[in-house]
Amino acid sequence: MSDILCITNRGLCREDFLSRMEKLAKAKPGGIILREKDLSPQEYLLLARQVMDICRTYEVSCILHTHTEVALSLGATALHLPLPLLVKLSPKERKSFSCLGVSCHSVEDALLAESLDCTYITAGHVFDTACKKGIPGRGLDFLREICQKISIPVYGLGGITPQNSKSVNKAGAAGICIMSSAMTCKEPEEYLKEFL
C-alpha cells in the first residue's frame, strides 16, 4: 500500500460521488476505504460494485467498510471494520481478506487488532478535526506509543494535512488517512502530491 488511504464520505462530496471516486482512484492513493455507514447492505452492495470497478480500472485497492457479508458476496479481498465488528468475525472470515484493517483508539485496541489477524490499523484521531468537533486530538505521543507496541502498519487518522503529515510519519506511522480533504479538494491528483 502507498502511504495515503482516502476514506469516503458522500455527505461531504461537492460533486457526483462516482466522478469523485474516479478522480481519487486516478490520483493513485494506497487505497480507498468505502465508508458509507448510512447505507443499507443492499444500497452499499450496489455502490461497492461501482466503486470496485473504478478502483480496478486504476489498479487501486478498494477497501470495503463495515458490511462483511457484502464484501464476501462480492469476493472483495480488502475490508475495514470498527473493532466491535472485527471481534465478531470467525477466524475463517478474517482469513477471507488479504487486507484486513480496523479502527483503533487505544494501545489495547491495537494489540487486540494485531492478535485478530489484521494486516493494518488506523489510529486516531491524531489532531483536532471538524469531524470530531469538541473532542481534542489524541496527539503524536498516542500515535507513537501504538506504533511501538505493534508490528503491523499503522495509519494515522484525523486532522492530517500536508503541513503536519511528516510528523505523523516521524511518529512511526506507515502512512496517513484523509477524508474531508479527499472529498472536497479541487484536484485530488494535485492534492495528494502535496503530501510527498
Score class of each variant (00 low, 15 high):
residue 49 R to M: 11
residue 120 Y to C: 12
residue 193 K to L: 14
residue 160 I to Y: 07
residue 167 S to L: 09
residue 48 A to M: 09
residue 5 L to C: 02
residue 91 P to N: 13
residue 19 S to K: 10
residue 21 M to R: 03
residue 172 G to S: 02
residue 147 C to A: 13
residue 22 E to A: 07
residue 172 G to D: 07
residue 134 G to K: 13
residue 9 N to S: 13
residue 59 E to T: 12
residue 20 R to N: 11
residue 77 T to I: 03
residue 43 E to P: 12
residue 22 E to H: 01
residue 55 C to F: 09
residue 121 I to C: 11
residue 139 G to N: 12
residue 49 R to S: 15
residue 142 F to M: 08
residue 152 I to M: 13
residue 26 K to M: 14
residue 133 K to P: 07
residue 74 L to K: 07
residue 108 E to P: 01
residue 143 L to Y: 05
residue 132 K to I: 14
residue 182 A to N: 03
residue 101 G to C: 05
residue 26 K to H: 08
residue 178 I to V: 15
residue 103 S to C: 08
residue 195 F to N: 08
residue 66 T to F: 00
residue 154 V to S: 04
residue 179 M to N: 01
residue 166 K to Y: 06
residue 16 D to T: 07
residue 74 L to V: 11
residue 55 C to Y: 09
residue 60 V to E: 03
residue 124 G to I: 04
residue 131 C to H: 12
residue 133 K to Q: 10
residue 30 G to R: 02
residue 3 D to P: 03
residue 149 K to C: 15
residue 42 Q to E: 15
residue 125 H to N: 08
residue 97 F to K: 06
residue 164 N to A: 11
residue 141 D to H: 13
residue 177 C to P: 02
residue 184 T to L: 05
residue 120 Y to F: 15
residue 132 K to Q: 15
residue 10 R to L: 02
residue 79 L to I: 02
residue 36 E to Q: 10
residue 62 C to S: 11
residue 137 G to I: 06
residue 14 R to P: 01
residue 10 R to D: 02
residue 70 V to H: 03
residue 171 A to I: 08
residue 195 F to A: 10
residue 90 S to I: 04
residue 33 I to M: 03
residue 79 L to E: 04
residue 34 L to W: 00
residue 115 S to F: 10
residue 190 E to S: 12
residue 34 L to P: 05
residue 183 M to Q: 08
residue 165 S to A: 14
residue 86 L to I: 10
residue 123 A to E: 05
residue 116 L to W: 07
residue 97 F to Y: 07
residue 40 S to H: 04
residue 49 R to I: 10
residue 68 T to K: 01
residue 177 C to V: 01
residue 150 I to E: 03
residue 81 L to P: 08
residue 98 S to H: 12
residue 2 S to Q: 14
residue 56 R to M: 11
residue 168 V to C: 12
residue 84 P to H: 10
residue 132 K to S: 15
residue 130 A to W: 00
residue 68 T to H: 04
residue 58 Y to Q: 11
residue 158 G to T: 03
residue 176 I to H: 00
residue 169 N to W: 03
residue 178 I to R: 00
residue 56 R to F: 11
residue 42 Q to G: 07
residue 147 C to M: 13
residue 18 L to H: 11
residue 149 K to M: 14
